[in-house]
Design a protein around this nucleic acid. Structure first.
Length: 441
RNA sequence: CGGAGUGUAGCGCAGUCUGGUAGCGCACCUGCUUCGGGAGCAGGGGGUCGGAGGUUCGAAUCCUCUCACUCCGACCA
C-alpha cells in the first residue's frame, strides 16, 4: 500500500478524551474513530490488526477442534425467556422491538442460541463431543464504557461452546480450550496468565480468566514469578491426548495466580515464596467457563445415551475479546514514540520510507523494492509522500510496523538501504538486492 | 446509577466572568527556499460557537430547557 493513497488520518496531539495509552495511540494512528460512547468505527489500519487477531484466534480454535458458525447479532427474546436470563441480564442487555412489536435483543452472548442450534442438530451421544464457535459483534450496554476498545459497548468477541455427554468428557473440552488459549495469546506475543475466576452472570462451576500482564491493566493481580519462566511459545500438543492436555492445564493452574477478587493472601503466602511473589496489573482478554447443564436443561438440549436414556449435555463456554485484544496488545507493547506491533498482528510487516520523494534515484529504488516486496506477498506500507524525513520517521515509529526499510540518497550510492527494527531500535545496512529475500517467507 | 466536568475549524485550545466584526497553534491549500529525526518565509481556505427557545438594538458570552461526550466511584468479554 502506498501511504499517499491510503486512508491514515494521523493526529499529532493526543485527543483529550483518551486516558490510557492504547486509546491515545489508536486514535493518533487513525485506527479507530469514536461514533458514540463505547462504539467505534474501525479505520483501515485498525481493521487490519483486528482481522489479523481474528484470524489467529480462528486458526487456533479450528486446531483445537472447534467448528466455526455465525449467529446473528439480533436475537429474539424467546430463547432468553426460556433460560431465565431475559430478566436476569438486566439493563446491560440492549432490548429492542421490531415492527411487529416483537421483543428482540442485541446479543450480549450466545449460550441460548447455540444451545438451541445444537439441540436441533444433535440427538445421539455418538455425535459428541462438539464445540461450536463464532466470531461476532456483541453489544453490552455498559454503564460506563471507557478506555477505547478495551471497554466498548459494541465489541468483537469469539465465543465457543462445548457439548459433552459426561462431566469428564466436558473437562477435556474445557482443557482443550484452556491450552488453545495459551497458544492463541502466545502467537500474538502475549503472556496471558490463566487465573481462577468467579463465574459471574454466565454462571457455572469451573472458570478461568486469562490476563495479559500490563501496567495499565484494570485488574490487580497476584501471581508467582514462575509464570515468567514458563514455556509460553506455541508448544505442540495432540489435542486428542487427554492426559497431555490435562498436564498442561495442571502445570499452569498449579502455580498461584489470582485477581484481587479471588485473591487469598494466606494461600498466596503459603504457596509462593516471598521472593517470587509478584503484584501487578492485568487486562482480561479471555474467559472460560464450565457450567454443566445450566443451559442444556432449561433449553432441552438432550441426547440419547448408550443406555437409551435422554440426558442433558454438559457444556462450557469460552470467550476471547478480539477487539479488546487490539488495545491490550498496545498496552503491553509500546514506547514513548508509539506502538510496537508484534509481527503476527502487525497491520503491515514492513514500512518502506523514501527519504527523498521526488528524487529520481530514490524513487526508482523504492518503486523496485515496493513492487518486489508486494510480489512476494510481504505486507508493506510505502511512505511515498513528499514529506520531510523527520515526519516520516515519526509517523512510522508511531504506527509501529515491526520493520522499517529506509532508502535515501546517502546509502543508495553504495547500493544499500537501512533496516530498522522498531522494537529494539537496532539499525543495520542491507544491500538493496538482498532486502526482498530477507522479508519474504 | 451517584458525584464532577466539557461541548468554539480535522486535532489541541483561548475568548464566556464584564454582551459589540470569532481568534491562536498544529494540520490543510499555493509559491519560493530547504530537505537523514516532526523546517523557514510569504500568501490562502475552512467554524449556523452541540441543539431549541428566550432576554436584548445586538448573544459564543446572560436566562430556561435539551442533547452529547469525558472523568471519579459502584459494576463488567
Amino acid at each position: 500500500m502506498r501511504l499517499s493513497q491510503y486512508f491514515l488520518p494521523i493526529l499529532r496531539d493526543d485527543p483529550k478524551e483518551a486516558e490510557i495509552v492504547s486509546h491515545k495511540l489508536m486514535l493518533r494512528c487513525g485506527m479507530i474513530r469514536q461514533e458514540a460512547a463505547g462504539s467505534y468505527s474501525w479505520l483501515p489500519l485498525g481493521l487490519r490488526v483486528l482481522r489479523k487477531i481474528e484470524q489467529i484466534v480462528r486458526e487456533e480454535q479450528n486446531r483445537a477442534g472447534a467448528i466455526e458458525v455465525l449467529m446473528p447479532t439480533i436475537q429474539p427474546a424467546g430463547l432468553w425467556r426460556k433460560s431465565g436470563r431475559y430478566e436476569a441480564y438486566g439493563k446491560e442487555m440492549l432490548r429492542i422491538k421490531d415492527r411487529h412489536d416483537r421483543d428482540m435483543l442485541f446479543g450480549p452472548t450466545n449460550e441460548e442460541m447455540i444451545t438451541d442450534i445444537f439441540a436441533q442438530g444433535v440427538q445421539s451421544y455418538k455425535d459428541l463431543p462438539r464445540n461450536l464457535y463464532h466470531i461476532q459483534w456483541k453489544f453490552r450496554d455498559e454503564v460506563r464504557p471507557r478506555f477505547g476498545v478495551m471497554r466498548g459497548r459494541e465489541f468483537l468477541m469469539k465465543d465457543a461452546y462445548s457439548f459433552d455427554l459426561t462431566r469428564e468428557a466436558g473437562q477435556h473440552s474445557y482443557n482443550k480450550m484452556f491450552v488453545s488459549y495459551l497458544k492463541t495469546f502466545a502467537r500474538m506475543g502475549l503472556k496471558a496468565v490463566p487465573m481462577r475466576a468467579e463465574t459471574g452472570p454466565i454462571g457455572g462451576k469451573d472458570s478461568h480468566e486469562f490476563l495479559i500482564l500490563a501496567d495499565t491493566g484494570e485488574s490487580e493481580v497476584f501471581f508467582d514469578r514462575a509464570f515468567h519462566d514458563m514455556d509460553w511459545q506455541a508448544f505442540e500438543i495432540d489435542y486428542d491426548d487427554v492426559e497431555a492436555v490435562a498436564k498442561v492445564v495442571d502445570d499452569f493452574t498449579s502455580k498461584y495466580a489470582a485477581t484481587s477478587e479471588m485473591h487469598d493472601q494466606a494461600d498466596y503466602e503459603k504457596r509462593v515464596p516471598a521472593d517470587r511473589r509478584v503484584t501487578g496489573r492485568g487486562i482480561e482478554v479471555g474467559h472460560i467457563f464450565f457450567f454443566g447443564t445450566k443451559y442444556s436443561e432449561p433449553l432441552g438440549a438432550e441426547v440419547q445415551g448408550p443406555d437409551g436414556k435422554m440426558v442433558p449435555v454438559q457444556s462450557g463456554s469460552y470467550g476471547i475479546g478480539v477487539s479488546r485484544l487490539v488495545g491490550g496488545i498496545i498496552e503491553a507493547s509500546h514506547d514513548e514514540a508509539g506502538i510496537i506491533w508484534p509481527e503476527p498482528v502487525a497491520p503491515f510487516k514492513v514500512g518502506l520510507i523514501n527519504l527523498k520523494a521526488g528524487d529520481a534515484g530514490t524513487d526508482a529504488a523504492c518503486e523496485r523494492l515496493y513492487h518486489a516486496l508486494e510480489c512476494k506477498g510481504v505486507d508493506v506500507l510505502y511512505d511515498d509522500r513528499d514529506e520531510r524525513a523527520g515526519a516520516k520517521f515519526g509517523a512510522m515509529d508511531l504506527i509501529g510496523l515491526p520493520w522499517q526499510v529506509i532508502v535515501g540518497p546517502r546509502g543508495l550510492k553504495d547500493g544499500i538501504a537501512e533496516v530498522k527494527n522498531r522494537r529494539t531500535g537496532e539499525r543495520e545496512n542491507a544491500a538493496l538486492d538482498q532486502l526482498v529475500g530477507r522479508f519474504a517467507r
